[in-house]
Design a protein around this nucleic acid. Sequence first.
DNA 1: TAGATTGTTAATCGATTAACAATC
DNA 2: TAGATTGTTAATCGATTAACAATC
Lengths: 206, 206
Amino acid sequence: MENQMIPDIIISRLPIYLRALRHMQDMGKFTTSSQELGVVVGISAAQIRKDLSQFGEFGKQGTGYDIAFLIGQLREILKVERVWDVAVVGMGDMGHALARYQGFSDRGFRVALVFDNDPAKIGAQVGNFVVRDMHEIVGAIRNSGIRLAMLCVPAQVAQEVTDLLVEAGVKAILNYAPISLSVPAGIRVQYLDPSIGLQRMTYYMD
Amino acid sequence: MENQMIPDIIISRLPIYLRALRHMQDMGKFTTSSQELGVVVGISAAQIRKDLSQFGEFGKQGTGYDIAFLIGQLREILKVERVWDVAVVGMGDMGHALARYQGFSDRGFRVALVFDNDPAKIGAQVGNFVVRDMHEIVGAIRNSGIRLAMLCVPAQVAQEVTDLLVEAGVKAILNYAPISLSVPAGIRVQYLDPSIGLQRMTYYMD
DNA sequence: TAGATTGTTAATCGATTAACAATC
DNA sequence: TAGATTGTTAATCGATTAACAATC
């Protein structure tokens, strides 16, 4: 079988490699080495080679990696050779920004549904979307088969909305709300709280 | 000396503990245990105790931790008992959302300056701020003594803007642009690319 | 060929967990 | 007191690095 339990820490680096490789490609480059890629992403060459070798032999001694080929392999490994529909929940400033974000389309994602519970927002247009009533969230997500959501509601209601997302069949949540979420086994959460990001750096300031 | 080189992975968990403790406090709780906190944040009780013990003895056998006291200690360790001024660079949707974000004030941060290079935006009001010309960025940040910035410009110009931020004296950057940044030693970067967050989860989907 | 770079092994390094004496 | 929970040690587990034969 393909999956011999690759450590999550390795998986978490692959999107970084992919992003850097696409950037190199945009700059007109055709090949790279673990050394060169390592400088760009700030990771040792040995680690990059070890990470990639978990999935196959993608390079050539002496010349390194073909960028287009490695991009293709990483997209397949990460399952972003396809396009995933995503729901955005909460049309405050952050949800609004994500609904209109132009950076998803070439990275494997497409916003497909957006929700809010504010009557003043329901039915309004945000980007290319009509804001749907949060009360319809379970049915709408279930019908669409969507399994990815971005959560941009206030912390106060984030857990209850999460429970609805899980009930609707969502398997992975990108959480912008500043709170730890409780989810059943098998449901993934990634946290993007800006204050946490800043607090991880102030410790080092004089 | 206070700093015997605490591993970064421990530092990165402290803001999570702090956020959860404040949530407990908001719920009216006064004490907690490493066990209880561990369930909330999804980290083992042993690890929480080990992490905290790097900085002092904050708990009591038999009863656990006083929440208010531990919050105070963590705020001091992370240096967020004070308020840090932050610059937001790039007034697209994401920068706009951050400039108006209400979640910084009680977490140790305050947006103080916002920048864009679009003549149509310069001088306009965003939240409580007047958008300043990006051409003034080095002088303005240097004058204000700001050492934290949130970067929300297009990937294409993110590195050159980063170089300006570093020149201006910024020591830590929260990067929303979808690109790896190159910075001198001693400058910290935290990455919050939403597509990376999603790609870290699609690998696990069937 | 000579030089470069891979994939992999073994060694090192670091982080997590389990267990428990101390003690509130 | 009896029960609970800390801080810490030692053991385990996992990740990173260094080195190099293979080979393009």
